[in-house]
Design a protein around this nucleic acid. Sequence first.
DNA 1: CTTCGATGATACCGATCGGTAACAAGCCAT
DNA 2: ATGGCTTGTTACCGATCGGTATCATCGAAG
Lengths: 205, 205
Amino acid sequence: MSTAQSSKLTDVKGGGVASRPRERILAAAKELFYRHGVNAVGVEAIADAALTNKMTLYRHFKSKDELIVAYARELAAEGGAVWQRIDDAHPEDPQKRLDAWVDYVEDILKNRFERGCALANAAVELQPGHPARTVIESYKKQKREKLVALFAAARYRDPDPLADEVFLLFEGARISIQCGDRGPALRVSRVLRQLLANAPRRGRR
Amino acid sequence: MSTAQSSKLTDVKGGGVASRPRERILAAAKELFYRHGVNAVGVEAIADAALTNKMTLYRHFKSKDELIVAYARELAAEGGAVWQRIDDAHPEDPQKRLDAWVDYVEDILKNRFERGCALANAAVELQPGHPARTVIESYKKQKREKLVALFAAARYRDPDPLADEVFLLFEGARISIQCGDRGPALRVSRVLRQLLANAPRRGRR
DNA sequence: CTTCGATGATACCGATCGGTAACAAGCCAT
DNA sequence: ATGGCTTGTTACCGATCGGTATCATCGAAG
């Protein structure tokens, strides 16, 4: 086993942005949990990557399970921030928000997330009933609700089925990134755009 | 199931369905790997569940990784058998094969697979490069190709994009079963049927 | 019956797991 | 300087991990 991991925490403890142990630990967990899976990474490896030690880790997180919960919450917050940015960019135009979201989807499927959705991956490894699963499930539910609201605001006729379809296409694309041909996932943004263009709308016309 | 090939009467351990250790081990692995994840289950637990011991397990599988590969192969073979059954049931009518597949999808999403696709779950837990990932990836690729061929045979105009969409919807439904609202996954069969009904076809009419 | 391959049983290995005790060293405010 | 709080360091715990060695036992074929 090579312990060689490139910890990008180069702005180390000297007083940089990530100088506090708790943040460094969470950042290291984000990296390692995502790359190797929550069950394949030990707390010591996380502490090492965070340039601290197990003891300090356990002073901030009372167990590995609680660290996993914090990890899930962090990811959910990041996902929420993406939506927030999109909303702020086009506060008056739901259609533009949808388009911006599809752009975002296209971007992350082409350039990031080679290991799929971190929250979905974590859910796969955690037993039903694990406290982190609550976070994951409510986040995913919320995300679909966001799509429903957006479709309604953009005057699509059937926001709910449309949100189902778009949501599942996106989830399928992310899981497919790491099993099987990447092609379908890379082409999903086109499917989404076509879907948005052709779905029936309410009102005029 | 249980296409048991044991011709002997000396079936012991468990009622006689699977008397040979290798089969019992693989069956136990299937159950435990699926329910808890490949990284969360130890070889000893598998041996115990198979009513045998670690030593016999290692006589049939030279490592846990190789057992995981055998597990993946088993799942892929089962998936192939489903297609085979569908093909045999409607050898002359590709449209009926598609309909039968949607029925199958609906069934497993409503009644089985509460933990999603076992192969996709395994891929999440395994590093890229793990021998089992090869099995998983080629299976998924093959499955999409099967859809393309079926759409072509059923005279759909654009089999490839259609297969992409159907494939991703199904994959998304399975992963969504265990994170978030189950609603979208339970409604996907309706989306699929609608998709098949409305997609443009080649030729006459 | 004897022989032989397959299995069971158990003990063991080094490594690592999640988690803790104890104490030294640093920091910052008073 | 003095406290008090946060960190670093080290050693340790019991449990479990994947994997192996050894030997007893069993079933069937000759």
